[in-house]
Design a protein around this nucleic acid. Sequence first.
DNA 1: CCTCAAGGCCAT
DNA 2: ATGGCCTTGAGG
Length: 432
Amino acid sequence: MQGIITQTLICGYFEIIAMARGWRPWPTLASSKSGGRRWRMWDSVRQVEGCRGPPTPVREKSLRPARRAHDASGRNWVSGTSPPGSPTAVIPTIATQIVCAMLPGSWESGSPVPSHFHLLHGLLIIFHCTPVLTTRLSEGGLVSNRYTDSSPLVSLLTVLRDDGGVSVPVSVRVCYVCLDSSTIGLLIEMLLDMENHSTLLSLNMSPFNANSGDSPAGTQASSPMPPQYGSPPISGHYNSCQQSMSMQHHQQTMMMSQSMNNLDTSYIFSPGANAISGVDMGASYQISGPATSLTTGDLPDTKDGIEELCPVCGDKVSGYHYGLLTCESCKGFFKRTVQNKKVYTCVAERSCHIDKTQRKRCPFCRFQKCLEVGMKLEGKFSLISEHVSYMCNHNTHLLRNFTDRNRSEVMEYYMTAVTSATLSSVLGEAYA
DNA sequence: CCTCAAGGCCAT
DNA sequence: ATGGCCTTGAGG
Ligand SMILES: [Zn+2]
Ligand SMILES: [Zn+2]
């Protein structure tokens, strides 16, 4: 009954630390003497791979000095670098949540990816991954529908383009939020619930043209919106703890028995490490600072003022539109783009700055930014609880409006108190 | 009743 | 094409 796979949908929820600048795990061969994992500086990566790298040199004193990395194979891995001219070097991404990804069935690592899926930063490490639901569809209907470990997603995360940039063929929503273990358990239950309700059969599989993406001018189709589920199966209460732990074990078992895709993902999880325990990102994310604490829970949002800026253009917000607080014009722009299926083209590098005065100049980049900040037709997270939704939007808003000083404070806190601890627990001595 | 987000309208 | 303003309709 197996027809030609026409589309593959991969859905999972992940806590991701974006190593946007500085370090990338170096997956050495298991047979190597160190048997461990090494880290290389971005610049080293660039030299090895001949990539262009970020537009500005990375100078981060908080990062550890480069280990003398020697590579056995020399070049059997994909480096992360930015699209030329993009502001990757200053992206303060702390955590990225990948909501879901949709690929054409014929897609393979390294093939052109649609430009609207192009991501501005490339170095990612996945922690606390939920099982990934991979659905394959043929013209005859659903072919397979199963959970796996994160390797399908990992193989998607790094696609080295011929221009030296890295594209990520997934729809990525940048959320400055970390998911704690209980939230992950909640998400796992939701995934299971989805399966029980056969929600995937009613997926809105938007048309997808694998060839549409790689045109140099950057054509942008609006129809492949971030794939959404039509009918959210969220209902009832989720007692997440037990379920999350059992599923986690299940996940690990599957990881052991399953062959990885193209990329070596072993560096992500140390053997036997519990991917859920360890550092509780959600809890430790609370920073003590001058009136800029990132709440992980409390919905009441007392101190506004900083929240009144449109995350797309900086104009004054007029309410919730398509999922978050935006201005009236961006609401209308998003509406027109989607309704009329508009296709824009960027004449520059697809990284135009969008603000109130310049938002009309490049609709491509404006719409791209709309997607990046999380605008979507359903308005609200269809699969994620209101709680998580709030955390994502709220924290994202807060951080986007941080001053540089505050942002660097958060980054420093996060890197020292959270990231380092997690990396140490996962990577052991290799990160010492 | 009320609130409010989605979408329509239309002068610019 | 844009964006300010309006109506609509769902839900409390
Ligand atoms: Zn705006
Ligand atoms: Zn542009």
